[in-house]
């Protein structure tokens, strides 16, 4: 039971991931994803494993510390206004 992928499905995922693709990329990725997903499907054979994850929460005290200045934080931004990041229009 293989999940072959067509160009429309690639476009749907690209939309979710906010990556614009052209027609050539959609077609090429659809091809390659078919092969790659077929390989991933072998994971269905993997048995359930009983494992105790050795994970612990790591906390630190919530104290005010020195951080980047506003100027430093904005230095890599393409656009800013009144000390804030400026992005594209939301609507």
């Amino acid at each position: 039971m293989s999940d072959s992928v067509d160009a429309d499905e690639v476009e749907h995922v690209a939309d979710l991931a906010r990556v614009d693709l052209d027609n050539e990329e959609r077609a090429r990725f659809a091809d390659q994803f078919g092969d790659i997903l077929e390989h991933f499907e072998a994971l269905e054979e993997v048995p359930e494993v009983e494992a105790e994850p050795d994970l612990v929460n790591v906390m630190r005290s919530d104290e005010v510390e020195q951080s980047l200045s506003q100027e430093e934080a904005l230095r890599n931004a393409d656009d800013s206004e009144d000390g804030r990041f400026k992005g594209p229009k939301v609507s």
């Binding site: 992928v5 995922v13 991931a17 990556v19 693709l21 990725f29 994803f33 997903l37």
Partner: peptide, 10 residues
């Protein structure tokens, strides 16, 4: 792009 899309898919 390939890895972002396949990760989004998975």
């Amino acid at each position: 792009k390939r890895r972002i899309l396949l990760g989004t898919y998975a």
